[in-house]
Structures are given as structure tokens and as C-alpha cells.
């Protein structure tokens, strides 16, 4: 294969990574934006989504697409309930103190990870893709399922954007994000908004995980990479900024794809991680964010 098609392949792979990453990072960004806490267990919600997707699809008989659809529906719901439970039992009692929350969510990370290891086991397992269709390009064939991941991610991002900017729920969330005390004074149940946002953030990660599981196997340690990459995306994009999250996910995903194909995946991670540390140091509000009040 010559350079051009090779690059195209790298960019396509990068776009798939970006699509999944944008969804995961959006969840983290919403939680940070509205609640001002960093959820270190976010990657484990992603992992839980993937593991549950395997469990659900292996229980449903018949055509793989049926099991996949069930997983796409049920897995985020279960993960959302787990997150809701954690929020009610732990985070609320800590009064959303940023540092205490980080320590508590690190604890949560280990608890979820170990439970997954105990009940799911150390194996990596794949979920069959809902359909097998190859798009034949002049130079190589490309999986139609991977392209559908990109489409699904775009649809979900648009839906989130619509909810945030055009509905009452979105208005309440933005009011809480902007000034939670004033929102409370205006009768917004801030406490319930927090619970909902935390669950929603976890559900977005779970959806992303269900989408990726047919091409990347489910494994109990798979949560760390999405967590670090989401951190990177959220920081570069500016916290709580939807547009910034999408742009940053594209930059990170595509450059990760290109560097991984032409150089080495470890080098790609080293470059991305140092870049983000530097962004945080020299431009704490992110590349696309605005300075907080």
C-alpha cells in the first residue's frame, strides 16, 4: 500500500477512536462542568458497560444484532443505576468536596475493577458485530460497522447538544453549572440535578463502550486508557465545553491513529499526555474554554 491510502486508513481508524472518545469524554466533561468534581472511576463505568454488553449479548439467543441491541439499551441503564447508587451513597455525603471526591472515586475504581475480575474473569472477550458489511474502497476494504460507530456517535452528540441547549432539562443543568446557589434559590433541585448528571455521564461512557466492544474486546482492565484519554480531551477542549470536547476528541483521536500507524502507540500516548500536561500548566482553561467566572 502506498502512502496516500495508508494515511487514509490511519485517519479512518483515528476517526473511529475519536467517535468513541468524544462520547466518553463528554460524560466526564458534563460531570466536571456541572458538579465541579473529577470522577476518576469514569473509565470503570466504560469498562462496566463493555463487560455488561458481553454478558447481555451472550444471554440473548438468535441473530447477533438482537443481542447487540439489547446490550445497547440495557447496559447503559445498569451502569447509570450503579453510578446513581455511588452518587447517593458516597459523593453526596462528601458534599462534593473536590479532593475527597477524587479519593473516593479512586476507591470506587478499585472496587468496580475487582468485582469485574471476580465475576467476569481475566479473559478478554469480543461481542459479535451486529452486521458484517465491508465497504470496498479502491485500495482496501473497510468495516461498515466501524463507519456506523462514527455515525452513531455523531447522532448521540447532536442529541446531547439538543438536550443541553434546547430543552428545559438542559436549561436546569446549565443554570446549576453556572451558579448552583442561585439555581437553588430559584427552586431548582440542585441535589437531584447532580445525581442525574452523574448517572448521565456514566451512561454516555457505557454507550461508548458498547459501541467499541465488537472491535475491541471487553477486559476488566480496559478502563484506564479511556480515562486518561478523556482527561486529555476534556482538558484540551476546555471543561464543560461541548464544542471543545468534540474538536479535542478529533485532534487526539486522529493524531493518535496517525502516530500509532506510522510510529508506535506508546509514543502516541507519550506525546498526547505531555501535551495535555503542558496545556494544563500554561492554559488552564483549555484551548477552547473561556476563563471561569
Amino acid at each position: 500500500m502506498s502512502f496516500g491510502p495508508h494515511l487514509l486508513l490511519a485517519v479512518l481508524e483515528g476517526l473511529v477512536t475519536s467517535a468513541v472518545l468524544a462520547l466518553t469524554a463528554l460524560g466526564l466533561s458534563l460531570v466536571f462542568g456541572v458538579m465541579r468534581v473529577v470522577n476518576v472511576a469514569h473509565g470503570e463505568f466504560f469498562m462496566l458497560g463493555a463487560v455488561l454488553a458481553w454478558a447481555i449479548s451472550s444471554m440473548v439467543p438468535g441473530h447477533p444484532s438482537l443481542g447487540f441491541l439489547m446490550a445497547l439499551l440495557l447496559s447503559p441503564l445498569i451502569v447509570g443505576s450503579v453510578a446513581l447508587l455511588a452518587e447517593r451513597l458516597v459523593l453526596r455525603r462528601l458534599d462534593y468536596n473536590p479532593e475527597a471526591t477524587i479519593v473516593a472515586t479512586i476507591g470506587l475504581l478499585y472496587v468496580i475493577q475487582q468485582l469485574a475480575l471476580t465475576f467476569y474473569g481475566p479473559e478478554a472477550r469480543a461481542v459479535p458485530a451486529p452486521f458484517n458489511f465491508r465497504l470496498q474502497l479502491p485500495w482496501f476494504g473497510y468495516s461498515g460497522y466501524k463507519l456506523s460507530i462514527i455515525a452513531a456517535s455523531v447522532v448521540l452528540m447532536l442529541a446531547t447538544w439538543f438536550v443541553l441547549t434546547r430543552t428545559r432539562i438542559g436549561l436546569v443543568m446549565r443554570a446549576t453549572q453556572y451558579d448552583s446557589e442561585t439555581a437553588q434559590a430559584f427552586g431548582i433541585p440542585v441535589d437531584r440535578v447532580y445525581a442525574g448528571v452523574f448517572a448521565l455521564g456514566a451512561m454516555l461512557a457505557a454507550v461508548a463502550a458498547v459501541l467499541i466492544v465488537p472491535i475491541q474486546q471487553a477486559h476488566y482492565l480496559m478502563g484506564l486508557d479511556p480515562l486518561l484519554l478523556s482527561f486529555i480531551v476534556v482538558i484540551i477542549g476546555g471543561l464543560g465545553s461541548l464544542r471543545g470536547t468534540v474538536i479535542a476528541a478529533l485532534i487526539i483521536g486522529v493524531s493518535d491513529g496517525v502516530i500509532s500507524v506510522f510510529f508506535s502507540p506508546t509514543l502516541a500516548k507519550i506525546i498526547a499526555t505531555s501535551a495535555v500536561a503542558m496545556v494544563l500548566v500554561f492554559r488552564p482553561q483549555g484551548l477552547f474554554g473561556t476563563t471561569p467566572r
Binding site: V38, E99, L228, F231, K269, I270, T273, S274, A277, V281
Partner: peptide, 26 residues
């Protein structure tokens, strides 16, 4: 890292440490 405070400090130190870890692998 000390140019940042609070949560950003935690994440920056974590990122630097991750770079160090990846370098040991690289």
C-alpha cells in the same frame, strides 16, 4: 505543576507520572 492548583494539580502530576511510566515502557 505548581503553576496549577487544586484539581488541575492532581491531574498534571498524574499526567507527568503517566509520561514517566510510558517512557519506561518505550
Amino acid at each position: 505543576a505548581l503553576r496549577t492548583t487544586g484539581v488541575a494539580f492532581m491531574i498534571v502530576t498524574m499526567m507527568f507520572s503517566q509520561v514517566f511510566y510510558l517512557l519506561t515502557l518505550y
